[in-house]
């Protein structure tokens, strides 16, 4: 399979990349890891006329921590680097736990977290993890930088809030105010398949109390789902059998799954409930859970 014919540019600076995108308008696409875009182009689901390959842009392959504990991940940081990141392991264990669950190890050598957020696949894992953590995306365009909360950035299935001449250059994860706990659980038919169901839970604990909670769901709706009511039910109290059951029910209620070849709607909803309860029941004391289930 070949993609349809396109013009290819590999700019050396962000300004150059942005002016190319401005020239290309709606027919231009940014290429980072290419692990979603290239397959889509081969299947002709996407036929951009201009590809702006950002892999040669300097200074976008990083994960770093600000003085206040905010974590920043550059647009060219690959999943494989995040999987091995000591910084994430110690500061954002939920992200460190989720990284090895993305796609398969070979795809992880190319694919990027920021690219995954931009792709906004309802079955994409990172959008859920970043949503649960209350993250943001930094966009760079002709007017400079702007920061977009992830819940507004993912604007629908395969849709993001970027203007045609903007590039997402960084994901931002706010510093936790308490001890981070939670995790990501993913049900998949085999390694590398899209999630049948994925659940991300990010808690911040202080003295046995949940001071912040985020829960987001993968693959059970038209877009990444933020289960706000479920998170709200946990906030301000300790994790108890009762609060866990309530949050699991509310999260299952927030899911809007469809029956398909990966499972029935009822099954997927049930798995949301099971996964939320499973992560929460192990989270007390600051544990992080990550597992693939098949």
């Amino acid at each position: 399979m070949y993609p349809s014919r396109f013009r290819y540019e590999a700019p050396r600076s962000l300004d150059e990349a942005v002016s190319l995108l401005r020239e290309g308008g709606d027919d231009a696409k940014v290429l980072a890891g290419g692990q979603s875009l290239v397959p889509l182009m081969k299947l002709r689901f996407a036929s951009p006329e201009l590809i702006v390959d950002i892999n040669n842009l300097p200074g976008l392959d990083y994960e770093k921590q600000d003085a206040d504990g905010t974590i920043r991940i550059g647009a060219l940081r690959r999943h494989a680097s995040l999987e091995r990141s000591e910084l994430l392991k110690s500061r954002q264990p939920v992200m460190a736990a989720a990284a090895p669950l993305i796609a398969d190890p070979i795809v992880r050598n190319r694919g990027t977290l920021v690219g995954s957020l931009c792709h906004a696949d309802p079955q994409g894992d990172w959008a859920s993890v970043v949503t649960a953590l209350g993250g943001q995306v930094v966009a760079f365009g002709p007017g400079g930088r702007r920061t977009i909360p992830i819940t507004g950035f993912v604007s629908g299935p395969f849709q993001n809030a970027l203007a045609p001449d903007e590039i997402a250059i960084e994901a931002v994860i706010p510093a936790p105010k308490g001890t981070p706990a939670g995790g990501y659980l993913k049900l998949e038919r085999r390694v590398g398949d899209f999630a049948t169901v994925g659940v991300a839970v990010a808690l911040e604990m202080s003295g046995g109390t949940v001071i912040r909670a985020g829960i987001a769901l993968t693959g059970v709706g038209g877009s990444t789902i933020s289960a706000g009511e479920a998170a709200q039910a946990l906030t301000g109290g300790p994790l108890s059998a009762q609060s866990i059951a309530q949050a699991a029910d509310l999260a299952a209620g927030a899911a809007n799954p469809r029956t398909d070849h990966r499972g029935s709607a009822e099954y997927k909803r049930h798995m949301v409930k099971t996964f939320v309860a499973r992560i929460l029941s192990r989270a007390d004391g600051g544990a992080t859970v990550a597992e693939r289930a098949a």
Binding site: Y8, A10, L31, G34, Q35, V38, P39, K42, I51, D53, N55, A80, D104, P105, I106, V107, N109, R110
Partner: peptide
């Protein structure tokens, strides 16, 4: 993964990378 090759020592699926890259 049948098309896996190493690019700068790292395995990639060569059907999912452009030759120009």
């Amino acid at each position: 993964g049948a098309c896996t090759v190493l690019v700068d020592g790292k395995p990639v699926k060569s059907c999912t990378m452009l030759a120009v890259q």
